[in-house]
Amino acid sequence: MTRTEITPSPTVTPRSEEQIAARVKALEAMLIEKGIMTTDAVDRLAEIYENEVGPQLGAKVVAKAWTDPAFRERLLADASAACAELEIGGLQGEDMVVVENTDTVHNTIVCTLCSCYPWPVLGLPPNWYKAPAYRSRIVRQPRAVLREDFGLDVPDSVEIRVWDSSSELRYWVLPQRPADTEGLSEEELAGLVTRDAMIGVGQPLHPGR
């Protein structure tokens, strides 16, 4: 077989992210139906890398919000627009909302139906985020799940709000800036921001840890 025999597929016209994602999904379904591969085989290969698409972009946004009060205001007012200032963006039509943790409110995100997730800022969701156990329990018993599954003890004096992301609106959390970080640069601060803190199942790291 020579290369010239290969039929070019009609990909010279621009395709949106949604169209490409749908095409990959269609292709996967067809190849599995034809017995060319199994779902398990594809999952195993995908898992090698999917935990490594990281949340560095979200961490950068959080660090800027911690150091720039005007940016923080814009982020809370319109997260998609504020992220676009930093050239961070996602699929068209998918709005992001940032919810801010305070001394009296702790926020956590979930997608109760599937795995909607603010991937332009947080990368791909961890497997537990997609699991039915987390999706149902975090809604019914948020305080217990945070303590038992994630080791995060939210004081009784703090209200917990759980936000349900959908394909139209995706939430993520602006955690509180850790104490004793006054002298740190934005870059150093970003290093303290974990994925779990932006999902709301953890806190940022403390300097020196």
Partner: peptide, 10 residues
């Protein structure tokens, strides 16, 4: 993106 990883895996 997620679809890149799936395309790779396929």
């Amino acid at each position: 993106t997620a679809w890149e990883i799936r395309a790779f895996a396929l």
